[in-house]
């Protein structure tokens, strides 16, 4: 066997790139709440991916009962509708299942953009300092002066109402928190010995940032990213609830708006407007629990 025959050169094998990245994220696997949060994420991701298989009906289709009546305002379990139907005869369970798609889509893309923009700005401001820092941090001050929700509402209403415009509007404002925290972290990192050593050795700024500083702030970016997932889902829900959401996608916020506008409160249709809220709470608090697990790793002082 040739594999065994050539043992002469034993290179210390570096772990696979994905394994290394996974380790660099330092997922908080020993905190029960953080694990619960990750599990909740996992369940919703599975539901979102297999929505077509899980949903019992087309979420936008107007349905009829076996007796050929409009299937409007049916209670859970009636005529085989697991969670009942809306006032326009749509299946609530299927809407809930498909709602997980837009929630995760918005949550993950917005969080990715917020973490990416915030990290890059924080890195650049913290590393280069001086006027670069001054300009970028004044921009952050300005972003802090913009009322977030009204800004998203106005942009979503003036541009074409779509999921992407909501995501962009959020990214335009929410990078500020991430950038400030990353910057202050970079300020301490860049005075460390190994960074000095790399500089003396003639590494370029780009290389120092990418190889020596960025890996150290990755967990922090991920922390702020997971906070942003919650913010994004809550914001999208608010925007849809106010009627400025994407009319072509079923989201939990849209379901709540539909229920509110169709007098579900007066009809006591708890089966209609409670489940979407619970789903939002589950996903958003999952993010909080993961965040808390992270804080225990990153700032052990807090968990004394």
């Amino acid at each position: 066997m040739p594999e065994i025959a050539a043992p002469a050169i034993i290179k210390p094998r570096r772990p696979h790139i994905i394994a290394r990245m996974f380790r660099a994220l330092r997922l908080p696997m020993n905190d029960p709440f953080a694990v619960a949060g990750l599990l909740i994420y996992l369940v919703f991701i599975v539901v979102a991916v297999f929505a077509d298989q899980i949903a019992t009906h087309d979420p936008t289709e107007i349905l009829y009962t076996p007796a050929y009546d409009l299937a409007a305002d049916l209670r859970p379990g009636q005529d085989g509708f697991i969670m009942g139907t809306t006032s326009l005869g749509r299946d609530i369970f299927s809407q809930l299942v498909y709602g997980s798609r837009s929630a995760l889509l918005i949550g993950i893309t917005a969080a990715f953009m917020v973490a990416l923009i915030g990290s890059i700005i924080g890195l650049v401001a913290g590393y280069f300092g001086r006027w670069v820092d001054a300009i970028l941090m004044r921009l952050a001050d300005i972003a802090f002066g913009i009322p977030f929700l009204p800004f998203v509402i106005v942009l979503a209403a003036f541009l074409r109402p779509s999921i992407w415009n909501v995501v962009i509007a959020m990214a335009l404002v929410l990078w500020r928190d991430t950038a400030r925290v990353i910057r202050s972290q970079v300020l301490t990192l860049r005075t460390r010995g190994y960074v000095e050593a790399a500089r003396v050795a003639g590494s370029s700024d780009f290389k120092i940032i990418l190889r020596h500083i960025a890996p150290n702030i990755l967990p922090l970016s991920f922390l702020y990213g997971s906070i942003a997932i919650g913010w994004a889902i809550l914001t999208e829900a608010s925007i849809s609830f106010l009627g400025f959401g994407d009319p072509n996608s079923i989201s939990w916020g849209y379901m709540l708006q539909d229920a509110f506008a169709s007098q579900a409160l007066a009809k006591q249709a708890f089966y209609w407007f409670v489940p979407p809220g619970i789903c939002i709470i589950l996903v958003v608090s999952a993010g909080f629990f993961i965040t808390r697990g992270y804080e225990n790793i990153l700032f052990p002082k807090l968990s004394r």
Binding site: L234, F241, L265, I280, I281, G287
Partner: peptide, 22 residues
């Protein structure tokens, strides 16, 4: 943490449904 994760308007809807309509 869960109260922080609630959409405020949803909490409002539940309060309305219970204390006002019910």
């Amino acid at each position: 943490l869960t109260t922080r994760a609630m959409p405020e308007f949803w909490l409002g809807m539940v309060m309305l449904a219970i204390f006002s309509f019910s």
